[in-house]
């Protein structure tokens, strides 16, 4: 169990400001996901929480204790890395034990803990192997096991699924979610993949350019994004943005509407366009509509629908779901 407080955390590398004042409260047992495009400073923030990087200014509190000058091993955290980062010269058991051994725990107790975690993650048969003898998925499982064994106040994950293939990613994602339910531990998870963020998080923190754009539950972010960036980042396929004047709403700078909130109508609607491409996904049909002055509009219809290419159709927006944005990107 642990809580985390970040107070005005800033980080500069030389003259480059990577984090520009991060304030955040993470409650006990919460699963918080940092999401944002590559290079927005997510890993840097996580590394600052872990103590692997010093903050240029600001304070970090874990369980109410300021840890700015506490070394990583004494912060009560455990971290899982994208590249697994297992010790190549040690077998699975020793990989998992090393942290506890360094902390001076008795051998017998370490053995018990490792066995418990190994059976929890069903990897007992791997315990004597070296990392080189494991598959990618198994390695990440060991890395997660190594974190659990430490029984930390705070789990930190830095894009742990990015190196796995799609099937394994979905499976491991589910396991991490279960793990959180089971351990009731506080977890901070970094990803650039909004699907991972939506499926795992109690709360999502959307970062861009070293600034928090919005903090909220997945559904809050989906239904009520604070600005153009969040609206575009959360949701897949991404939200359509149309200049107000072309959508018949001259007073509004930008109109945003999600693909699933548009219906196609042969007789009339908000925008007229030509179908250029249709993707049949089974459960959904994604239609790309080329509209004059506006460009490509993505429409998502549920179920299988036969739509001819090159057909002229109207896009009709669900008026209750249309969002309006000002010139500076904020909601209006």
């Amino acid at each position: 169990m642990g809580s985390l407080t970040l107070h005005d955390v800033r980080k500069s590398f030389g003259s480059v400001d990577v984090l520009k004042g991060i304030d955040l409260e993470v409650g006990e047992g919460e699963f918080v996901v940092f999401v944002g495009p590559s290079g927005c400073g997510k890993s840097t923030l996580l590394r600052i929480i872990a103590g692997l990087e010093d903050a240029t200014s600001g304070s970090i509190l874990i369980n109410g204790r300021e840890v700015n000058s506490v070394p990583p091993a004494k912060r009560g955290i455990a971290m899982v890395f994208q590249t697994y980062a297992l010790y190549p010269h040690l077998n699975v058991r020793d990989n998992m034990s090393l942290g506890l051994k360094q902390a001076g725990m008795a051998k017998a107790e370490i053995g018990q803990r490792v066995d418990k975690v190994a059976s929890m993650l069903s990897m007992k048969e791997l315990i004597a192997r070296r990392p080189a003898e494991l598959s990618g998925g198994q390695r990440q499982r060991v890395a997660i096991g190594r974190a659990i064994v430490r029984e930390p106040d705070l789990f930190l994950f830095d894009e742990p699924l990015s190196n796995l293939d799609a099937a394994l990613r979905a499976q491991t994602r589910l396991e991490i979610a279960k793990l959180h339910d089971h351990l009731k531990a506080t977890m901070v998870y970094v990803t650039h993949d909004q699907v991972e963020a939506m499926t795992l998080a109690d709360r999502i923190v959307v970062l861009n350019g070293g600034v928090i754009q919005q903090v909220g539950s997945p559904m809050e972010l989906y239904n009520n994004p604070a600005n153009l960036f969040v609206a575009g980042f959360i949701g897949s396929p991404r939200m359509n943005f149309i200049p107000g004047i072309h959508a018949g709403r001259g007073s509004i700078h930008t109109v945003g509407v999600r693909p699933e909130h548009i219906t196609l109508d042969p007789d009339g609607g908000d925008l007229e366009g030509t179908v250029t491409h249709v993707e049949y996904l089974g459960a959904d049909t994604i239609i790309y509509l080329e509209c004059k002055d506006v460009g490509l509009i993505i429409v998502r219809n549920f179920g299988e629908q036969r739509i001819e290419n090159h057909k002229r159709l109207f896009a009709r927006f669900d008026p209750r779901r249309v969002m309006q944005f000002n010139a500076d990107g904020s909601r209006s």
């Binding site: 872990a50 070394p71 990583p72 890395f81 590249t83 297992l86 010790y87």
Partner: peptide, 14 residues
């Protein structure tokens, strides 16, 4: 050499 590996070591208290 992987930065993550060294950092994993630091977190384990090496």
């Amino acid at each position: 050499v992987s930065k993550d590996l060294k950092d994993a070591g630091r977190i384990d208290g090496l």
